[in-house]
């Protein structure tokens, strides 16, 4: 085992070390070993012991009392954990927003136009919301009903007003409306891609780092 081979084996044994710490620790390892080798004909492994023990002793002396030497896997694990928590929080936020939206727009059994007028006459309708062509009736209990096959909006408004029902016109497809409907759904679509991306990211981070000969 010559100097190059011995040094390579020492570097390999320290493969899990933070690359910057390793680069600093092993800065002139080859030159140093060359000095040791030049002094005697006895093979390096015989004089210094196996490269793995040499690496362990080197690291022990380097890490004792001095700057903490952090291994790369530990740092990677922390990075992966924080990335995972960010995505989890994001997913929770999307889930919450979607649930809110669903709760707000929950519509129980749709009403026909006849049903609407009957209910309005009976005083069971508290409000009618008109959004473009969509008509939604809100009954006294606060439940929302899609009104299917509604009369032209003008007629409907007249009839409802006559029965003492408030008619609220909402601007159709305002940017705020679309933002409220589209954004959470868009995020929901993106979420699986995020999860897959995270899985790949974590896999890359946790892959065992390979020793890089020639550093430093």
């Amino acid at each position: 085992m010559d100097v190059r081979q011995y040094a390579a084996a020492v570097r390999a044994a320290l493969g899990g070390l933070d690359p910057r710490a390793a680069a600093h620790l092993l800065d002139d390892l080859e030159e140093h070993l060359a000095e040791v080798a030049a002094e005697s004909d006895v093979p390096l492994a015989e004089r210094l012991g196996p490269p793995e023990s040499y690496a362990a002793e080197l690291l022990a002396a380097y890490a004792s009392g001095g700057a903490p030497v952090r291994s790369r896997p530990a740092r990677r694990r922390r990075l992966a954990a924080s990335a995972a928590s960010v995505v989890l929080v994001l997913l929770a936020a999307v889930g919450f927003a979607t649930w809110q939206l669903a709760a707000r727009t929950e519509k129980v059994n749709p009403w026909s136009y006849d049903r609407l007028t009957t209910q309005a006459r009976a005083g069971q309708v508290s409000r009618v919301e008109v959004t473009g062509d969509d008509v939604v009736a809100i009954d006294r209990a606060g439940q929302r009903h899609d009104v299917v096959d509604a009369a032209p909006v003008g007629d409907l408004a007249q009839t409802m007003t006559r029965e003492g029902v408030d008619v609220v016109f909402q601007p159709a497809a305002s940017s705020a409306y679309w933002a409220a409907v589209l954004l959470p759904n868009l995020l929901l679509l993106v979420a699986p891609a995020l999860v897959v991306g995270l899985a790949v990211f974590v896999a890359v981070l946790l892959r065992r780092p390979r020793p890089r000969p020639g550093t430093g």
Binding site: H24, D27, R47, E57, L58, A60, A61, Y62, A67
Partner: peptide
């Protein structure tokens, strides 16, 4: 004294 211990100590003192 071990060769690796001295070398590691030198590198640490240099780093610090």
């Amino acid at each position: 004294v071990g060769d690796a211990s001295v070398y590691g100590t030198l590198r640490r003192l240099h780093q610090s």
